[in-house]
Computed example of a mutant assay.
Amino acid sequence: MQRIRKAVIPAAGFGTRFLPATKATPKEMLPIVDKPTIQYIVEEALASGIEEILIISGHAKRAIEDHFDSAPALEMELEKKGKNELLKMVQETAAIKIHYIRQQQMRGLGDAILCARAFMQDEPFAVLLGDDVVYNGDGKPALQQLIDVYNETGSSVLGCQTVPEDKVSSYGIVKGEPTDNKRMLRVLDMVEKPSVEDAPSRMAVLGRYVITPAIFDILAHTLPGKGNEIQLTDALQVLAKRQSVYAYDFEGIRYDLGDKLGFLKATVEFALRREDLGRPFQIYLKRLVANL
């Protein structure tokens, strides 16, 4: 069984829900406090043992490449002014090994994953979507939890969390059968945004995957679906009929960054956890609430 060494981060979308901010700035570069969203995703991958990362980019996404590149003029200025901690931060970011390929047409998440086929070289791989940031503190990263399940089963794993009943209609929901692990189901099917009455479970697929390379042949023959896009969910449904696929209810606080309220929650809560910002920011928020 091959180990998980590579990950793909799809980052080609237009980010229309955050216009006008995303007209000239990739949504993946919008900061949570002072760190771009995509850097949280990259750091989770690295903390999970990933060695090589492929970012699927699109038009007007050059800022992502620049962020993970060296910046000689900036580094020289920081060194000159003795700002060594900031210099170290900039250099460490530039040292991350990242590859890029462009999705030339916006044909959906399934097509974006298919763009990674040559890079993966018939290996199982991880997928991390940039709309979902997961906070685990000192605990095990969400992706590492999925990789652990893959190491036990040798099968594809969908990162899920149990959502409240009134939220099931917002997500793809897993239909599955129980396993010996109470946090895990064997996937039988997936239902996209079902009503509460029709939902087969409360396990929602949330932006983390470990997938075997068999998915690529399936994606290559998957016809466009909703929105005339190639849907990864459609291909995973086929994969689950051909080989075992598991849904794992991972631990961690998940933030939906595709939603403005979710983005605000992430910004506030990450700021409150900061040693340099947490206490004064908490005092400010208490005063603010008291005066509303």
Results as ranks from 00 to 15, higher is better:
23 K>Q: 13
165 E>L: 13
144 Q>T: 01
146 L>G: 05
3 R>F: 07
83 K>G: 02
32 I>M: 13
69 D>Q: 12
38 I>N: 11
37 T>E: 10
143 L>N: 03
192 E>P: 10
84 N>Q: 12
42 V>I: 14
6 K>N: 00
152 E>R: 15
226 K>V: 13
211 I>K: 03
31 P>G: 08
208 R>Q: 06
71 A>E: 07
83 K>E: 15
92 E>N: 15
254 R>Y: 02
16 T>P: 05
271 A>F: 05
16 T>G: 09
2 Q>L: 07
252 G>H: 02
100 Y>W: 13
184 M>E: 01
1 M>G: 11
211 I>M: 04
204 A>G: 03
191 V>D: 06
55 I>M: 05
251 E>V: 12
71 A>P: 04
58 G>D: 03
176 G>A: 07
128 L>F: 02
168 V>H: 07
122 D>T: 08
43 E>D: 15
66 D>C: 04
198 D>A: 15
50 I>W: 03
96 I>Y: 05
211 I>Q: 01
106 M>F: 14
150 Y>A: 02
287 R>T: 08
167 K>D: 13
112 A>L: 04
59 H>K: 15
195 S>D: 11
84 N>I: 04
208 R>S: 05
157 V>G: 06
92 E>T: 02
203 M>F: 15
193 K>S: 13
190 M>G: 07
154 G>M: 10
103 Q>L: 15
162 T>P: 00
146 L>H: 05
234 D>C: 10
10 P>M: 00
62 R>E: 15
59 H>W: 13
14 F>Y: 10
233 T>N: 11
48 S>D: 02
89 M>D: 14
238 V>E: 04
43 E>H: 08
207 G>C: 08
132 D>M: 14
189 D>G: 11
197 E>Y: 04
98 I>Y: 07
25 T>N: 14
5 R>S: 04
225 G>W: 06
172 G>Y: 04
232 L>N: 01
173 I>V: 14
216 F>K: 07
212 T>Y: 05
179 T>L: 08
193 K>M: 09
141 P>Y: 01
245 V>W: 00
157 V>T: 08
230 I>Q: 07
50 I>Q: 02
80 K>Q: 10
230 I>S: 05
284 Y>P: 03
190 M>K: 03
78 L>T: 10
199 A>F: 09
280 P>Y: 06
267 T>I: 06
13 G>M: 06
234 D>E: 12
287 R>S: 15
52 E>I: 08
197 E>I: 12
15 G>H: 12
51 E>W: 06
108 G>Y: 00
40 Y>Q: 00
46 L>P: 00
252 G>S: 11
53 I>K: 06
228 N>P: 08
180 D>A: 14
244 S>E: 12
111 D>Y: 06
262 G>W: 02
227 G>F: 07
185 L>D: 09
107 R>W: 04
73 A>C: 05
8 V>T: 05
4 I>F: 03
289 V>S: 11
278 G>W: 12
2 Q>P: 11
185 L>P: 06
100 Y>F: 15
115 C>I: 06
193 K>Y: 03
8 V>C: 03
292 L>I: 12
100 Y>G: 09
193 K>C: 13
10 P>C: 01
181 N>D: 15
86 L>F: 00
183 R>L: 09
220 A>M: 12
94 A>N: 09
143 L>A: 03
218 I>D: 09
174 V>D: 01
